[in-house]
């Protein structure tokens, strides 16, 4: 295994709410190798987005990283000073959010927004930056003429590309993508995915890809981690997670997506509703919805165990 680019050890993130403290990310450990795409899948409230925010310490009150460490290139992100953190956020890591296309400033042209980012972090002139901005737009498949456009003059898909261009501007080694295509139509999503494949080949950055859409994940990720109620319950190479999942939740999740080809049969998905983080049961968080629930599941938390080389799952049954 290659030297890890990012290493997360026993990360815990809490939300302090009026009704108590909820643990949104519980004891999560994972690594991302250079050039690798790691997918994190799970439904809303499982902690996948919180994880993305926490890695760059962009989480806001009342969220709190209570335990753990985030090692990037040998440095702990959680111990960085404000200035180090600022540099880290742009030069090493950048983030693309689901609603990022709406985060562009509506009264400034996209060209200016791109050059601003470049000038703020690199010691080059505005002219050079403008050339670079045009180049970046070309990379994400937008014509250079669009530099003078305002965000509202572009479609949702184009705006999302602009955001990706901004994320690429400082050539980060890791891009965190939190549901980057969820708000887009399938055809536009496909265009952006195609763009992403090309860019990855060209620049070789790592991606932490967060999504609820497992089919999409199975396509783009090298490895997949599945989260449920704050816990990482299964992680391994994408093919195995998809074709031979070990954890009952992963199995159910994969069975929840009707396929476009293949046999047409009744699917059953997962019964019940996601657990409330403020009312977690003793033992496994998935016990109420699990068909294979045993006595031990109601008493002890299952721990992530190595099933195979680089393949882990957390279930008493395994």
């Amino acid at each position: 295994m290659k030297e890890a680019l990012l290493e997360i050890n026993n990360l815990c993130v809490d939300y302090v709410s009026a009704n108590g403290v909820a643990r949104a990310v519980n004891n999560v450990s994972l690594t991302i190798a250079p050039g690798e795409t790691l997918g994190i899948a799970g439904e809303s409230g499982c902690g996948k987005s919180t994880l993305a925010f926490a890695i760059t310490r962009l989480h806001k009150a009342p969220a709190l990283i209570s335990e753990g460490e985030i090692i990037y290139n040998g440095r702990d992100v959680l111990k960085m000073s404000d200035k180090e953190l600022r540099d880290f956020r742009w030069n090493d890591v950048s983030i693309v959010f689901q609603s990022a296309m709406n985060s562009l400033n509506p009264v400034i042209t996209i060209g200016e927004q791109l050059t601003d980012v470049i000038v703020a972090h690199k010691r080059i002139s505005f002219k050079q930056a403008a050339v670079k901005a045009k180049e970046l737009l070309g990379i994400v498949g937008i014509h250079g003429d669009r530099l003078k456009s305002f965000p509202h003059q572009l479609s949702g898909g184009m705006r999302q590309r602009v955001v990706i261009a901004i994320a690429l501007a400082l050539e980060p080694k890791l891009i965190i993508m939190d549901e980057p295509t969820t708000a887009l139509d399938v055809v536009v999503e496909r265009e952006i995915l195609n763009e992403l494949y090309d860019l990855k080949e060209k620049f070789g950055f790592s991606i932490l890809f967060i999504s609820h859409d497992l089919s999409l994940m199975g396509e783009i990720a090298d490895r997949i981690g599945v989260m449920y109620a704050g816990n990482l319950i299964e992680i391994g190479d994408a093919k195995t997670v998809f074709s031979k999942p070990s954890h009952p939740y992963t199995k159910g999740l994969i069975a929840s997506f009707p396929t476009i080809h293949g046999p047409k049969e009744r699917l059953y998905g997962i019964p019940g509703d996601p657990v409330n983080l403020l009312r977690l049961p003793t033992g496994c968080n998935f016990q109420d919805r699990c068909a294979d629930c045993m006595d031990i599941c109601k008493k002890e938390d299952p721990l992530l165990a190595e099933l195979n080389v680089d393949y882990h799952a957390a279930c008493h049954k395994l």
């Binding site: 302090v16 009150a61 009342p62 709190l64 990283i65």
Partner: peptide, 16 residues
């Protein structure tokens, strides 16, 4: 963002 839970958050944040 006010209320008692924010006070708790501030305390916990300072500690970490």
């Amino acid at each position: 963002k006010t209320g008692p839970h924010m006070k708790l958050w501030k305390k916990m944040n300072r500690e970490t």
